[in-house]
Simulated assay, not measured.
Amino acid sequence: MSLKQTLKKAKQIERQLEQQAEASAQHSLGTVKPRNYLALDPLLRKGGIHEKEDIDIVRKKRRRETKQQLRKTDWLSE
């Protein structure tokens, strides 16, 4: 092989490596970690004895229950 052919072959190899590096960089940026649905399981949340009985928490609970009751009522039939 002549020097000219060797240089040409080296440039081709460099271009291929750059393209592969760009493709792998784009691929790694596009990957998304799967969501851990086990962490969202209600059985794994705090509650019961461990739940704080703070005044604010009690008010929030009472307010949420009231809102749920108001949503359930049929206002058009009354």
Rank of each mutant, 00 (worst) to 15 (best):
T66D: 11
R63W: 08
I13W: 13
T31N: 05
Q20M: 09
Y37H: 10
L70A: 02
V32R: 01
L43K: 15
E65S: 04
G48V: 03
A21M: 12
L40E: 10
L76S: 06
T66S: 14
L76M: 10
S28V: 01
E14W: 10
D54M: 02
S28I: 04
P42I: 07
H50E: 13
S28R: 06
Q68N: 03
R63S: 15
A25N: 01
E51I: 09
S28Q: 05
D74G: 00
V32S: 02
R15W: 06
L40S: 15
R63G: 04
A21R: 14
G48R: 05
L38P: 00
A21H: 06
R15C: 04
N36T: 12
K67Y: 03
R15D: 14
L70I: 02
E14N: 14
D74I: 07
T66C: 02
W75Q: 04
D56F: 05
E51M: 13
R59C: 12
W75R: 01
E14T: 10
Q16S: 07
L38T: 11
T31I: 07
A23N: 06
L76E: 12
T73W: 06
N36W: 08
G47R: 04
K60M: 11
Q16H: 14
H50L: 09
L76V: 06
K67V: 00
R35A: 06
I57C: 10
E14Q: 15
R45K: 14
L44W: 07
T66R: 13
A39G: 13
L70Y: 02
G47D: 10
K46H: 09
R64N: 11
L70G: 02
L43V: 13
K11P: 01
A39W: 04
Y37K: 07
D74Q: 08
E53D: 12
K67P: 00
R59D: 11
T31A: 06
A25D: 01
